[in-house]
């Protein structure tokens, strides 16, 4: 298969597939080596630049052709967009806990959050943001993990395409500010100087 043929085949596959196609899957389908397929993807991404109606995106562990963001309105005239509900702050926090600590059970999520997570986990399950990931060998609680739908919705290339949790940690000054607020409110005793 020549490079041109491979490029056309990759373009046809990512156009036809309703879900992201991984590099491995593209290699299987085209019977080509990873190197040429990667070059074809790069060429395809360059071909579908801002002047094109669609763009090549690496999302949820694979490659997919999607419409350009500025064409959303005209696309919605063709097809009614399925209603999607916003996630509440509690759901986003729970999602963050699961995304960073997956697989994690519901009681473990509740311990991290400090509050019950039953309703939130059920809601995330219903929305397809998380899925069951089996039970731990030494436990009976079901564990959960995020789904490709979660990665797609939040524009993640894969389950681990998250910023380091360390960058979200409170700095020493910020942690001290929290403690000071607690002290000001009378929840913590004043430090003995």
């Amino acid at each position: 298969m020549t490079e041109t043929q491979l490029l056309r085949a990759v373009e046809a596959l990512v156009f036809l597939s309703p879900e992201p196609l991984s590099l491995v899957r593209l290699c299987e389908l085209t019977e080509a080596a990873p190197g040429p397929v990667q070059r074809a993807l790069a060429e395809l991404a360059a071909r579908h630049d801002a002047s094109s109606g669609v763009e090549l995106a690496e999302i949820a562990g694979g490659w997919v052709l999607r419409t350009q963001a500025d064409l959303g309105a005209v696309c919605d005239r063709l097809r009614a967009r399925p209603p999607e509900e916003r996630l509440s702050p509690a759901a986003l926090e729970t999602l963050a806990v699961i995304a960073y600590l997956e697989p994690i059970s519901r009681p473990e999520v509740a311990r991290v959050r400090g509050v019950s997570a039953e309703a939130t986990v059920a809601s995330l399950l219903e929305r397809g943001m998380i899925e069951e990931a089996g039970r731990a060998s030494d436990g009976v609680a079901m564990r959960y993990r995020t789904t490709p739908a979660f990665q797609e919705r939040f524009g993640l290339k894969g389950p681990h395409d998250l910023p380091s949790i360390a960058q979200f940690e409170l700095s020493g000054a910020e942690a001290e500010a929290v403690r000071q607020r607690l002290r000001d409110a009378g929840h913590l005793p004043d430090e003995v100087v």
């Binding site: 916003r86 926090e93 797609e152 939040f154 979200f168 409170l170």
Partner: peptide, 15 residues
């Protein structure tokens, strides 16, 4: 707090 901040970050990334 880090997970709360991660939740806020997720909100900014929500498609």
């Amino acid at each position: 707090a880090p997970f709360q901040r991660a939740g806020v970050w997720l909100r900014t990334q929500d498609g």
